[in-house]
């Protein structure tokens, strides 16, 4: 079983997102990037599958200029190989373009199971795993947990909210968007990552990507921040009344 894990880095939300207030453009080069949290889970799930079944785990990232550390970290955690897709990419490269690049690579280099984080914080132009599957015509599922191999089929859980889940089984190859790994992602110690940097190499694969449908993002802007709660005045009855209407506005009341 050959498993491919698609990973990407996203701006670190702990730090400020840097925006050119006038143009509404994100200043990618001024932000720090970290591995997408959901991708971390996908890597973990892959490694857990590997521990159960000796699968071979490859991690992949589109080379947007800052992915080496992320890939070495995955190797330090136990992935077998790491691949960097090279071409005309940078931090502002759209998800759609990344998905297309990955689809080209996978077409040439087949895998049985492709995992990735179900989403990322910056994927307004679509989630990568679903797009890769769509481009390749592969079956796929999102919001997946608990992936296990059963012969040549892959069993997994899909979550539907409100605690509802189903167990699904799929033929291979299949693309799964991981919601959470069975166990919290493991830690890669700094020393181990450093050691990987010395002892292993990232495979570089050149890919050319044709024009893809891109979104025209006019601007990014900050929502009006609260800073302090909006106080609801009145007695218990009045406050309850107001809370219920707030909940209704947000579809949080049942029925």
């Amino acid at each position: 079983m050959r498993i491919l894990v698609l990973t990407k880095s996203v701006p670190d939300l702990v730090e400020e997102l840097v925006l050119d207030e006038d143009s509404g453009e994100l200043l990618h080069d001024e932000m720090t990037y970290v591995p997408s949290e959901w991708d971390d889970h996908a890597v973990e799930e892959a490694l857990l599958i590997k521990e159960d079944s000796n699968a071979d785990v490859t991690v992949l990232a589109v080379d947007t200029g800052d992915v080496d550390n992320m890939l070495f970290t995955a190797l330090a955690k136990g992935a077998d190989r790491a691949i960097k897709l090279q071409g005309d990419f940078d931090l502002s490269t759209s998800n759609r373009k990344r998905a297309q690049a990955i689809a080209h690579y996978v077409k040439e280099n087949p895998y049985d199971l492709i995992l990735s984080g179900v989403q990322a914080i910056d994927d307004i132009d679509g989630q990568i795993p679903a797009m890769v599957a769509g481009l390749l015509g592969m079956p796929h599922a999102s919001v997946v947990t608990d992936v296990r191999l059963d012969g040549d089929r892959v069993h997994f859980h899909q979550e539907y909210g409100g605690g509802l889940q189903a167990e699904l089984a799929s033929q291979t190859p299949v693309v799964l968007g991981i919601q959470a790994a069975r166990k919290p992602p493991r830690y890669a110690s700094i020393a181990k990552v450093r050691q990987m940097m010395k002892s292993s190499v990232l495979e570089e694969v050149e890919v050319a990507v044709e024009e893809v449908p891109e979104l025209e993002i006019r601007r990014f802007f900050k929502p009006v921040a609260a800073g302090h709660a909006e106080m609801i005045d009145g007695d218990a009855e009045e406050v309850a009344e107001r809370i219920v209407s707030i909940l209704k506005e947000r579809n949080l009341v049942r029925g």
């Binding site: 955690k77 493991r186 830690y187 890669a188 110690s189 020393a191 181990k192």
Partner: peptide, 10 residues
Amino acid sequence: RAALLEDGEI
């Protein structure tokens, strides 16, 4: 602890 940490356990 360092040994556990190197195995990712923490």
